[in-house]
Design a protein around this nucleic acid. Structure first.
Length: 404
DNA sequence: TCTGGGGTCCTAGGACCC
DNA sequence: TCTGGGGTCCTAGGACCC
């Protein structure tokens, strides 16, 4: 088999950089990349966490995911800016379109990361030179910077793009693994998170090199499939392909942290209905039907519960899914104060994939028409304006809660 | 002024059938 | 009277990613 040629392109401080250049474009003179700043959620609605940080904020020890409260304690002149996904999506698309000039085998791994399979697209050039060209062109033409990882598989390309930042190109070829990767702490390895790292520490495994040389069988015994994966990753083994064909979503859900805790089934169900409307709207937009419905509740002391139910008939009807969601709330709600509520649908399929059943009767056809006509209004007037009957949508609930 | 929201994948245990 | 496994489906919960 031919050796694969893979690049991983990772936008430096994506949300913060994109916010910065958008502000400059709109006439602001301050470049927020040059000061201690973060992109954060709204503390009033209890979403106050750091989503992205500038280099100066990073230098203060601020990390992504921590609360804005903690971040301010580390840096007293910290500036906080809100996020804007529409803007981010535009810059993400601009990057994607530039990368398309190099290969059409691009996997959009997230809004700010892409894998490129360059195997068939080098035409005599070296992979490293292509990476350097991309790095330069993005900065010049798009106004933000990226790191580019250069390797022969996705895992090593991703690890490489995570080396020194910003605006850098790094290679991580097989022969470089001991020198460049094995010296790193295991917490740096992709797919080793906060739960697994302490367990490995207790086994005396601290560096990625320790993990690479550890007995694979013992890891498998202790961690199952995850054990095999982490051993392979530590040794730079990854045969996964660049998934350049966008895949159908496997699940669609929405959740919300409430501005204040709520109590009681009726109040929970109001939110569940609003969330169900959002979820089924998205299902219908993609022309998908759900076969499983699940509801998640988080209590005020951060205990998570979730129950799910398999449906007899696939559906994307608001009424049908809400009916099931309500039953789930009924069976699992124990009377706690609730902080977060989520509704999710799984085992999605397309209309054509199911056969009409006896249950596909006149009544359900009528329901389908109602959902469709509401969707049309939502497309026309914007999502938040249209809600069904007596029901408030989540935005209204959030606003109402804020005033309390 | 504590701790988001969108996902994917895996595991363990129970029910049920042969 | 006592004691099996293997396979599949379903559910609850957890780990990880950005």
């Amino acid at each position: 088999m031919k050796e694969r040629q893979i690049l991983h392109v990772d936008v430096n401080n994506a949300f913060l950089s994109w916010t910065a250049i958008q502000r400059l474009k709109e006439g602001e003179t301050l470049d927020i990349r040059e000061i201690p700043s973060v992109i954060g959620g709204d503390e009033e609605t209890r979403s106050g966490i750091v989503l992205a940080k500038s280099m100066k904020a990073k230098a203060c020890g601020i990390v992504t995911g921590e609360t804005l409260y903690q971040a301010r304690k580390k840096c007293n002149n910290l500036q906080v800016y809100p996020s804007n996904y529409k803007v981010y999506k535009n810059y993400s698309n601009a990057l994607y379109n530039l990368l398309l000039q190099y290969t059409d085998k691009i996997e959009r791994f997230s809004i700010d990361e892409c894998f490129l399979d360059m195997t068939e697209y080098l035409a005599g050039a070296t992979l490293l030179n292509k990476a350097i060209e991309i790095n330069n062109r993005v900065e010049k033409e798009l106004g933000f910077t990226v790191n580019v990882g250069v390797a022969h598989n996705k895992l090593l390309a991703k690890m490489a793009s995570d080396f020194e930042k910003p605006n850098k190109v790094h290679t991580l070829y097989e022969e470089e693994i001991p020198k460049k990767m094995w010296c790193l702490p295991i917490s740096e390895l992709f797919m080793l998170g906060r739960k697994t790292v302490p367990k490995l520490y207790n086994m005396g495994i601290r560096k990625i090199g320790d993990l690479a040389k550890f007995d694979e069988k013992i890891l498998i015994k202790k961690f199952g499939k995850h054990g095999k994966l982490m051993w392979e990753y530590a040794n730079g083994i990854d045969n996964s392909e660049v998934q350049y064909e966008p895949e159908e979503p496997k699940s669609i859900g929405n959740s919300i942290t409430l501005p204040s805790d709520i109590y009681g089934k009726d109040k929970i169900n109001e939110i569940v209905l609003a969330l169900t409307e959002q979820v089924t709207y998205r299902l219908r937009k993609y022309d998908l039907l759900a076969n499983v419905v699940s509801v998640q509740l988080r209590t005020k002391d951060f205990k998570d519960y979730s129950h799910q139910r398999k449906l007899l008939i696939s559906t994307n009807s608001t009424r049908e899914i809400y009916k099931v969601a309500k039953e789930i709330v009924e069976e699992m709600y124990k009377g706690d104060f609730i902080r977060l509520i989520g509704v999710r649908t799984d085992e999605l399929c397309h209309k054509g994939q199911i056969q009409l059943t006896l249950f596909d009767n006149e009544n359900s056809k009528k329901q389908e028409k109602i959902d469709k006509s509401i969707d049309v209004l939502k497309e026309k007037y914007g999502y938040s304006k249209i809600t069904r009957g007596t029901v408030m949508n989540v935005e209204n609930i959030v606003k109402a809660k804020r005033k309390e």
